[in-house]
C-alpha cells in the first residue's frame, strides 16, 4: 500500500470523528511516513509496519466512542455506540455481551412505553368521564390526575434505571478494554 492509499483509507474509515480531531490523529501517521522516508524506507514498508488501517481505525473509534460516552455519562445512545465499537473490534463475544445488552435495551423500551401508556390512559378516563356513563367528570379528573402522577413517577424511575444501566455498561466497557483510565482532577 502506498502512502496516499494508506492515509486516504484511514481518513475515510475515521469518518464518524469530527474533522478537527481526525486531522490531529492523522498527523502522527503522516509524520510516520515522513520520518520513514527520511530514513530511506519505502512507502510500502512504512505502511506494512503501521498495520492494517481497518484495525487501527477500529481501535481509534472505540477510544473515541468510550470517551464521548464518558463525557456525557448516562447517555444510553453514546454508550450503545461504544458497545458496538467494542464488538466490531472483536473485544467481546458477540453473544455474551451484545445479546444481554440488546435484551436490556428491550426491557427499558418496554418500561418507557408502560410509563407513557399509563400517563396517556388518563385521556381515555377523561373522555369516559365527559361523554360516558361509568363515572362523573369530577371522579374522572381525579382518576386522570392520579394516572398522570403515576405515569410521571414511573417515567422518573425508568429514567433513573436507564442512566444507571448506561453507566454500568460504560464501566464494564472501560474495565474490559482498558482503553481509558479514570481521569484525575
Amino acid at each position: 500500500m502506498t502512502r496516499e492509499q494508506y492515509l486516504g483509507q484511514l481518513w475515510d474509515l475515521l469518518a464518524p470523528v469530527p474533522e478537527k480531531q481526525r486531522k490531529e490523529w492523522m498527523y502522527d501517521y503522516e509524520e510516520h511516513f515522513r520520518v520513514s522516508a527520511e530514513l530511506g524506507r519505502s512507502e510500502e514498508a512504512a505502511a506494512a509496519e503501521l498495520g492494517d488501517p481497518r484495525m487501527i481505525a477500529k481501535e481509534m473509534l472505540l477510544n473515541y466512542r468510550v470517551d464521548q460516552a464518558d463525557r456525557k455519562s448516562g447517555s444510553i445512545t453514546l454508550v450503545s455506540r461504544a458497545v458496538f465499537a467494542a464488538v466490531s473490534l472483536g473485544f467481546f463475544n458477540l453473544i455474551f455481551v451484545l445479546g444481554p445488552f440488546i435484551g436490556m435495551i428491550g426491557v427499558l423500551i418496554a418500561l418507557w412505553a408502560a410509563a407513557v401508556g399509563v400517563a396517556l390512559s388518563s385521556l381515555a378516563v377523561m373522555y369516559e368521564g365527559l361523554f360516558g356513563s361509568a363515572f362523573t367528570s369530577v371522579q374522572a379528573s381525579f382518576i386522570a390526575l392520579a394516572l398522570i402522577g403515576l405515569g410521571m413517577l414511573l417515567g422518573a424511575g425508568v429514567h433513573w434505571l436507564t442512566r444507571a444501566f448506561a453507566k454500568l455498561t460504560l464501566q464494564y466497557l472501560k474495565f474490559n478494554s482498558k482503553v481509558i483510565r479514570v481521569k484525575k482532577g
Partner: peptide, 17 residues
C-alpha cells in the same frame, strides 16, 4: 503491537495529561 496502534496510545496519554 503494530506501530500504528502505538499512536492512539500516545494520543490518549496526552489527553489524560
Amino acid at each position: 503491537v503494530a506501530v500504528g496502534s502505538v499512536y492512539p496510545l500516545l494520543n490518549r496519554l496526552t489527553q489524560e495529561g
